[in-house]
C-alpha cells in the first residue's frame, strides 16, 4: 500500500528499522546522560526527537494498511504498552534498557496475537508494533527523567501528550498525496512542541533555568521544523487560498 515509494516527493521511504535504530541510540544516550548533565539537561532534548519520529513512522506504517480501528487507537495502544512497562519498571528501579526491552517484547507479542490469532494479514504488524511500543517507552522514560523526583501526578499528562505527538502526524497528513517525508516533518514539529510543554511543566513545578532551557531548545527546534514542514506543504499542494470571511462581509 502506501508504504512503498512516496507519492509526490520522489525517492524511497526511509526504512522504519533505520529510524528505530537511530531513535534507540540517541534515546538511550539521552536517558543515560540525564544523570551527568544535571541542570544542563536541556542540551539533550534534540536527542529524544528521533524517538518521536520513529513512533510516528510506526503509526504510519501500521495505519496505512487500513487497520479497521482508527489511527488514534493504534497511537493510544502503542503508547499504552510503552508507558505501562516504563511506569511499572520505574517503580522497581529497573534499568532503562530492561524497560525498553520489555516494551519491545510487549509490542511484539501483541503484534503476533494480531497477526496469528486475529489474522490481520499485515506483513509489518509484528515489527511495527514492537518499534512503536519501544520508541514510546524511550520517550516516556526520558520525559519522566527530566523531573528531579518521581511525579506520579504527571504520568497521565505524559501519556496523553506523547500519544498525541505520536498519532497526529499521520492522522493530520493522511489522504491523497500523503508521503513519509511530510508526515515525519510534522512529527518533528510535534516532538518539539511536546518537549516544550514538559519544559513549561518543569518550570512551574520546579522553577529553575532547566525548564526555561528546555523551552528555548524546543522553540529553536520548532522554528526549524515548522519551516521545513511548511516548505514541503507548499511544494506539494496545488494552491493555497484564504478561507476566512468572504470579502463581502468586510
Amino acid at each position: 500500500m502506501s508504504t512503498g515509494t512516496s507519492a509526490t516527493s520522489g525517492g524511497a521511504d526511509i526504512p522504519s528499522l533505520k529510524l528505530f535504530l537511530i531513535s534507540i541510540i540517541t534515546g538511550l544516550a539521552a536517558i543515560y546522560l540525564q544523570g551527568y548533565t544535571a541542570a544542563y539537561v536541556f542540551i539533550l532534548i534534540p536527542l529524544i526527537w528521533p524517538a518521536f519520529v520513529s513512533s510516528a513512522n510506526g503509526v504510519r506504517s501500521l495505519a496505512s494498511y487500513g487497520l479497521g480501528t482508527g489511527t488514534s487507537s493504534i497511537g493510544y495502544w502503542g503508547t499504552a504498552v510503552g508507558a505501562t512497562t516504563v511506569y511499572a519498571g520505574m517503580q522497581m528501579g529497573l534499568s532503562p534498557i530492561v524497560e525498553i526491552s520489555a516494551a519491545l517484547a510487549g509490542g511484539a507479542i501483541t503484534g503476533i496475537c494480531a497477526q496469528k490469532i486475529i489474522k490481520m494479514r499485515i506483513p509489518v504488524m509484528v515489527r511495527e508494533s514492537a518499534i512503536l511500543a519501544a520508541s514510546t517507552a524511550v520517550i516516556i522514560r526520558f520525559l519522566a527523567g527530566l523531573f528531579p523526583e518521581q511525579v506520579s501526578l504527571l504520568f497521565p499528562l505524559m501519556y496523553i501528550a506523547v500519544t498525541l505527538a505520536v498519532l497526529h502526524p499521520y492522522n493530520g497528513s493522511m489522504g491523497a498525496g500523503e508521503n513519509q517525508r511530510r508526515t515525519l516533518w510534522l512529527s518533528r514539529v510535534e516532538a518539539s512542541m511536546t518537549t516544550a510543554v514538559f519544559g513549561l511543566v518543569l518550570l512551574f513545578i520546579f522553577p529553575s533555568m532547566t525548564g526555561a532551557g528546555i523551552i528555548l531548545v524546543s522553540a529553536l527546534g520548532f522554528a526549524i521544523f515548522i519551516r521545513g514542514w511548511y516548505r514541503m506543504v507548499k511544494k506539494e499542494i496545488y494552491g493555497m487560498s484564504w478561507t476566512g470571511f468572504p470579502a463581502a462581509e468586510h
Binding site: 480501528t69 495502544w77 499504552a80 505501562t84 494480531a114
Partner: peptide
C-alpha cells in the same frame, strides 16, 4: 488504564 487500553484495541482488529 494502560492494560485496559491494550486489551481494548486488540478486539477492535
Amino acid at each position: 488504564a494502560g492494560i485496559f487500553l491494550i486489551n481494548c484495541v486488540l478486539p477492535a482488529y
